[in-house]
Design a protein around this nucleic acid. Structure first.
Lengths: 133, 133
DNA sequence: ACCAAAGTTTACGTTCGCGTAAGCGTAACG
DNA sequence: CGTTACGCTTACGCGAACGTAAACTTTGGT
């Protein structure tokens, strides 16, 4: 079993997705499995892309945004203009992600404060129970 | 103009959303504006909640997840069980968010590496142009 | 008093990200 | 040689998160 090529079922088991999902991503041009006859075969590159797709989804990106992100990881034509465009797009995406990163930190801190406040209130009630009860 | 109460239009302008969106969030019980006659009036609390809603959306949370998150910020009944439940839920959410935070850091680093690689390729082509051209 | 602007409800329409069922090919197993 | 399993395509369905249109009331300005 050459692990360099996987069937759709092996992919589904490995990544916990359905066949429908893989075919859907293919229709949206996010992955490009080979065809052996009618059957799809997924290689290392497809798996790497799928990993990025699923991660992108956890960040709330749309499939279209993810598709554009994936293009940034492609070897691409050694055309200067293309490389420059990729660099520019990468920088923009990086800026967005850094902002989101900072925002998430802020949200975490706020929730932490809220948690501490709840713990304080619980402690107050507990102390009250001990004196009153 | 008492800025403690805002009309739906002022809210839309301030947060860059449509009236439909605000009414939709209200129908889903994410915000609870007062009614002066038939009209809605939004106070500081509504605005605070809307800020959290929009931020949650940027993190890819569903409105239902956000609604549950908002509950954690509510004063809530001083019932011990309720507070304990809130604390427990807050801890779980915090764990998730910390994980997402770390994951985002990883994604940023990967894209950075990719960017550096692109810059290297561009430099190589440029150097090539200078010697060849 | 009147008109336009703004707000309200009701309800159908739309896009995204798949789920799900129908119907067909084919390959392997007993 | 049948049937069982897996995969393929086509296509309709569905919940989320609004957009949009229709019809009505309310409110502010002149």
């Amino acid at each position: 079993m050459p692990d360099s090529l996987m069937t759709i079922r092996q992919m589904c088991d490995a990544f916990d997705v359905t066949p429908r999902t893989l075919r859907f991503y293919e229709a949206r041009e996010l992955i490009f499995p080979e065809r052996r006859g009618q059957h799809r075969l997924y290689d290392r590159r497809d798996r790497a892309r799928l990993t990025l797709i699923l991660r992108g989804k956890r960040f709330g990106f749309s499939l279209e945004q993810i598709r554009q992100l994936l293009e940034l990881y492609e070897p691409g034509p050694n055309n200067r203009a293309q490389i420059e465009a990729t660099i520019s797009a990468s920088r923009e995406r990086l800026t967005d992600m850094e902002r989101q990163y900072a925002e998430l930190r802020g949200a975490i801190e706020e929730l932490k404060d809220q948690l501490i406040e709840s713990e304080r209130r619980l402690a107050a009630i507990t102390a009250d129970d001990e004196t009153t009860g």
